[in-house]
Amino acid sequence: MDAAAHDTHDAHDEPHLTPYSVYVGIWLALIALTGVTVLASVVDMKHQAIFVALFVATAKSTLVVLYFMHIAFENRVFWWFLLSAIATFVIFVLLTFADYAYR
């Protein structure tokens, strides 16, 4: 293994260090999104409330998965695992709605 390859290998294996500021920022964002949920519960938005709830849930879980679970800094194979789970979920929901949407 030549020196350059060795360096690349080491760099790849080195764990990613996330500054505290990022964690604090994510935490504040999660609190803000919780605030949106509380706000939505007191405003009468009728059917749109479901979209707000889904948006907040998606945004919060994305932040947690990317930063707290470290996926943003992981190897590509982990992305494939995550994407396969998301794709499976989306397909399940879409096919279920092949029933619900037409009832």
């Binding site: 096919l95 092949a98 029933d99 619900y100 949407a101 037409y102 009832r103």
Partner: peptide
């Protein structure tokens, strides 16, 4: 009691 469209797809 599923919708017909859903039954055809499945």
């Amino acid at each position: 009691g599923m919708a017909d469209e859903g039954r055809i797809i499945f």
